[in-house]
Amino acid sequence: MEIEVSPIADAPPSNWVDRWAPESWRPYLRLGRFDRPIGAWLLLFPCWWSQTLAQIDLGQTFLNFGYLVLFAIGALAMRASGCAYNDYIDRDIDAQVYRTANRPIPSGQVSPEAALVFVAATACVGLAVVLNFNWFTIWLAISSLLVVAAYPFAKRLIPYPQLVLGFAFSWGALVGWAAVKGSLGLPALVLFTGCVLWTIGYDTIYAHQDKEDDALLGLGSTALKFGDNTVSFVGALYGLAAIFWLIAGALAGAHLVYFLAVALVFLQMSWQVATLDIHDSANCLRRFQSNRDVGLAVFLGLLADKALSWFAGLG
């Protein structure tokens, strides 16, 4: 049976890939989700948070902007590689799902073999970024590939695949700290735990777009497990995430401005939960995408913390 192909809901026609990229590049840029950058932001922010928190813990006044740039490049490359790998593994499933049937592999825009080449090429970019850090960070970052490799199979085997995704998307909370300090510490582990909870929450919202197809295909999803209780579960996950972020900041010696930023972020996450309609795909997508604002607000709070410390040093 021929599957009706959906428009790309989270990549409007005005996105830069469809407007500006050479036509021959577009299938590969879509494969790497460069037309939908929200995932790269969500992968990047835990890196930036952790790096900045580690520098606060060390009492360093000036932020290492070189590391910020490296993490940005790495997040773009590894998100692209992970998405292409996921699409390769899920190509037969994606062809049966309305929202994903238009992806480059099931729609025939990119062959499975070419997709694997893309996976390897973008992973090499990520490796080149990681090699700029200390050896502990290099091996810590490489170890995340085990989690990334496991994720596409998680939904086939367990009812909570978002937990595996949480580990994959939150790994940067460990890597950022290690890049600065050469080891792991309790604040990084606490921050990582909060990020895992946050990821499970926002991806549960995202997964409600596919819950009917997931049920028909026998795939696991927290959207299916939580069902009509999603609002309560996501609210609890978000609340716990904020608590862990506050504890991480306290352990690292952050100041009041950071805690105020997390409090404001919790209000935004409360808005997500209070206005969530799990039966409306557009509503779910908008609330999922708004987590970029969560990430940015926490990062700005950390930047403000460092700026105030610098001004205090001048006094």
Rank of each mutant, 00 (worst) to 15 (best):
E2I: 15
A9R: 15
A11Q: 13
P12G: 13
W16M: 06
W20S: 08
R26M: 04
R26W: 01
Y28G: 02
I38K: 03
A40N: 05
A40V: 05
W41S: 05
L44W: 01
P46I: 00
T61V: 14
T61R: 15
L68M: 09
L70K: 04
A77T: 10
M78L: 15
G82V: 13
G82H: 12
C83Y: 03
Y85E: 06
N86S: 13
Y88D: 02
R91M: 02
D92Q: 14
D92R: 15
I93Q: 12
T100N: 05
T100S: 10
N102Y: 06
R103G: 04
S107K: 06
G108I: 10
Q109F: 03
E113G: 08
L116Y: 09
L116E: 11
F118C: 09
V119A: 10
T122S: 06
A123C: 14
W135V: 10
W135P: 08
F136S: 10
A141R: 11
S144Y: 07
S144D: 05
L146T: 10
V148T: 12
A149W: 07
A149T: 07
F153K: 02
K155H: 09
R156K: 13
I158T: 12
I158A: 09
W171Y: 10
G172E: 08
V175H: 12
G176E: 11
G176P: 15
W177I: 15
W177F: 14
A178E: 08
A179D: 08
V180D: 11
K181L: 05
S183N: 12
L184K: 10
G185R: 00
L189M: 14
L189K: 11
C195V: 08
C195Q: 01
V196E: 00
D203G: 04
I205Y: 00
K211Y: 11
K211H: 13
E212F: 12
L217D: 01
L219M: 15
G235H: 08
A236I: 07
L237P: 00
L240A: 09
L240N: 00
A242W: 00
A242S: 10
I243M: 07
G253K: 03
V257G: 03
F259H: 06
L260E: 04
Q268M: 09
W271T: 01
T275R: 08
I278L: 12
D280G: 03
V294K: 09
G295L: 06
V298C: 14
G301D: 11
G301V: 05
K306Q: 15
A307L: 08
L314Y: 06
